[in-house]
Design a protein around this nucleic acid. Sequence first.
DNA 1: GAGTGGTCTAGACCACGCC
DNA 2: GCGTGGTCTAGACCACTCG
Lengths: 229, 229
Amino acid sequence: MAATYREIKADILGRITRGDWPPGSLIPGEMELAESYGAARATVNRAMRELAEDGIIERKRKSGTRVRMSPLRQARFDIPVVRREIEEQGAAYRYALVSSEAVVAPDWLRARMALAAGTEVLHLVCLHFADAAPWQHEDRWINLGLLPQARDADFATSVPTEWLMSQIPFSAVEISISATAADRALAAHLDCSAGDPLMMTERLTRWNDQTVTYVRLVHRPGHRMTTRY
Amino acid sequence: MAATYREIKADILGRITRGDWPPGSLIPGEMELAESYGAARATVNRAMRELAEDGIIERKRKSGTRVRMSPLRQARFDIPVVRREIEEQGAAYRYALVSSEAVVAPDWLRARMALAAGTEVLHLVCLHFADAAPWQHEDRWINLGLLPQARDADFATSVPTEWLMSQIPFSAVEISISATAADRALAAHLDCSAGDPLMMTERLTRWNDQTVTYVRLVHRPGHRMTTRY
DNA sequence: GAGTGGTCTAGACCACGCC
DNA sequence: GCGTGGTCTAGACCACTCG
């Protein structure tokens, strides 16, 4: 009866999917399960904790553990670094800078990045290619108040994402995904027609409660994000 | 120096963000950290395991633990049940069935769902409203070979998702997100113009290696999925 | 072979949340 | 109160992998 936490987790999940413990029902307590599996309570605890993280069950002190009514809670999507994403498909990665300009942040951007009036930002437009085909269009604004050294960085050769990671490797991020229509410029860069629907990823990066950079990544036509579980 | 795994995790993360341990560098071993925090190795292990799950560090036996080069690996998005999503905003949820029809699966669907030739499917079209406003358009196909009882279910009153969960509560799922353009019918249902860009979520649900249902959920114009970390 | 993380145990105390 | 999960400890053995 010696059991690993993986075996216990699989067994409990099996009982749930098999219908022995239907949604909403109460699962036996940790001590009881530990005894029936011939394992320590810590081992059962780990199995149960992971099932709770996976959104399968719900745990509460005193009341015990219940099977969730609706199991599909959240999905993880990989947010890959574009270079890797492309190279992992066996394509060659190429980067190109379209434009680079230091400007005073316009109102809409100041609001979005929570910047003080008059703050300067570096506005970059660049493209990422997989072999010859355009893969992603990047429209980025970097807070020059926080990162003045961005003025002197050579973004014709450094990929902004990679340069930024060398400056502030870890930070808080807010990611948002939506659908947008290609305007004329995007259509030209991404080799599609104006008005075509495109997926857009926006990312706000914060550091010490200040916004470092805001980026809009527009993916090539037909791009999908997929996940299994 | 008594420390909880949360404190240890926060402290390690702090050292990483502060730059004490830059990307790619080797972090001290569990025993060493346990001693310096005055904690048991199991406690340090839990902190480190979670940091690894979060994609901050990378662990390997024998070689030790390293800070990841690129921290942004994956993001979790909530995949809410539509009824909840709407009610949590304080709006009233309303469901409407547009059409329901049992048909032999067309070729494109057979390929996608991996069905045998001649398999019948129930094709449902329905709408989800938040107060008076259309929120989501649902186009669903249910495998009648696997779920013949779907013929007799009353989808004018039962929401398909909820009915399905009562039949097969737990299952393997493949989710995919993309951008699409509204056709005439979608535009009419979602109260927008034909050609408008819309987010679409597709979901394939499997059970015992058979596909139970395939659904296309098209979200209202302007819909976003957001996450922070 | 030896070092590092991966896991398990047996026991303990704590904290939340019902009654 | 008191039962349930949440966490910690000290020690042990195992498994992977590098040199």
